[in-house]
C-alpha cells in the first residue's frame, strides 16, 4: 500500500511526497484499503454530507426527548440570533445554533451522522453547514474537507480513542472539534501546516474533558458541549490561520490525549459514577426516569 499512514505526520509526509493535498492522501488510502474507485468513495462521503444537511433541515424545535431533559434549545438560540443580539459574529453564532440543534435531534431519535460518535454528531455539521451557507462554497470542496476530518479522526482513533467510555469526552467532543478545525482551516485556504495546527490547537483545548452524562443519557452535558466543541474549532482554525502555532506538535497532543484518557478514573468515563452524573440534581432526575408508554416491563 502506497498511502499508508499512522500519524498526522505521515499524512503530511505523503502529501509532500506525492504533491497532492492531504485530503487526497486520505481518500486514496480508503480506495486502496476497501478496493473502491475514486468515484465510489467520493459519493459515499458526499452521502454523509448530504445526510448531515438533511438532519440539520429536519430539526424540530417542538420535539422533546424521552427523558424530557432535551429539546427546544435550538429554537431559542435561533430566535436570539435572528434578533441580531448575537455577541459572536454571524458565522460562529450559526455554528452554535446548528450544533445545539443536531445534538437535540440526536437525543430525540432523529437520524444523524455519527462524527465520530453519535454524542458528538453536532460539531462537524455545525462548522461545515454554516460555512457553506454563509460563504457559498462548492459542494465538492465541502466533501474534500470532510475527507480531511475523517483522516484526522482515523489517526486519533488509532493512537488514542474516540469513545467516551475509553477516553472521556475529550475523545468524543475533543476529537470532533479537532477534526472540524482541520476541515475549516482547509476550507479557508490554509496550507498543510495551518490545517494540522488548527487541529492541534483544538484538541489541546479539549484535553482532560470527562464523560459524565446525567442519567447515563446522551443529553446533559453532551448537547451543549457540541456547541462548545464547534465554537472551539472555529476559534482554533482562526488562530492557526493567523499564524499562531501550537508549541506541542499534533501527534504528541494525540499521544497526550491517550495518556490522559488512561489516567482518567473510571467514574469519569461514561459510567455515570462521577462528575455531573452524581450531582444532587442528577440523582433527583434519575429518580424520575420512568418508562415511556408501551415500554412497561413485565416481571417473570
Amino acid at each position: 500500500m502506497e498511502m499508508l499512514y499512522h500519524s498526522v505526520r505521515d499524512i503530511v509526509s505523503l502529501s509532500e511526497k506525492y504533491q497532492i493535498p492531504m485530503w487526497q492522501v486520505i481518500m486514496k488510502k480508503d480506495m486502496e484499503e476497501r478496493q473502491v474507485t475514486k468515484e465510489e468513495t467520493f459519493e459515499t462521503m458526499h452521502h454523509m454530507y448530504l445526510s448531515m444537511k438533511q438532519a440539520d433541515q429536519e430539526y424540530d424545535k417542538d420535539l422533546v426527548s424521552a427523558s424530557k431533559l432535551a429539546g427546544g434549545d435550538g429554537g431559542k438560540i435561533h430566535v436570539y440570533n435572528k434578533a441580531g443580539k448575537n455577541l459572536m459574529g454571524d458565522y460562529a453564532s450559526l455554528v452554535m445554533e446548528k450544533a445545539i440543534k443536531m445534538g437535540e435531534s440526536n437525543a430525540c431519535m432523529k437520524r444523524i451522522v455519527a462524527a465520530p460518535t453519535a454524542g458528538s454528531c453536532g460539531v462537524i455539521p455545525a462548522v461545515f453547514l454554516s460555512y457553506q451557507e454563509l460563504f457559498d462554497v462548492a459542494e465538492d470542496k465541502m466533501v474534500e474537507a470532510l475527507f480531511l476530518c475523517a483522516g484526522i479522526g482515523e489517526v486519533i482513533a488509532e493512537n488514542a480513542c474516540i469513545a467516551g467510555a475509553s477516553g472521556g469526552c475529550q475523545a468524543e467532543i475533543g476529537s470532533a472539534s479537532a477534526m472540524a478545525a482541520a476541515g475549516l482551516a482547509y476550507l479557508q485556504g490554509g496550507d498543510n501546516d495551518m490545517i494540522v495546527n488548527a487541529m492541534t490547537l483544538a484538541l489541546k483545548n479539549m484535553l482532560g474533558l470527562t464523560c459524565d452524562p446525567v442519567c447515563g443519557l446522551v443529553e446533559v452535558p453532551c448537547i451543549k458541549r457540541n456547541s462548545a466543541g464547534a465554537v472551539n474549532a472555529v476559534a482554533s482554525a482562526q488562530l492557526s490561520l493567523a499564524g499562531i502555532k501550537s508549541a506541542i506538535p499534533a501527534d504528541e497532543v494525540i499521544d497526550s490525549m491517550r495518556r490522559i484518557g488512561n489516567d482518567m478514573p473510571k467514574c469519569l468515563k461514561e459510567t455515570g459514577e462521577g462528575g455531573l452524573a452524581v450531582t444532587q440534581t442528577a440523582q433527583r432526575l434519575r429518580a424520575y426516569q420512568g418508562l415511556a408508554d408501551g415500554e412497561k416491563n413485565t416481571t417473570f
Binding site: 476497501r34 437525543a107 432523529k110 437520524r111 462524527a115 453519535a118 475523517a150 482513533a157
Partner: peptide
C-alpha cells in the same frame, strides 16, 4: 475500522 466508521454511520440517535 475504516473512514466511514469515523464519519458515519448514518443512524437514528441517540446512542
Amino acid at each position: 475500522m475504516n473512514l466511514y466508521d469515523i464519519i458515519g454511520p448514518v443512524m437514528v440517535g441517540p446512542s
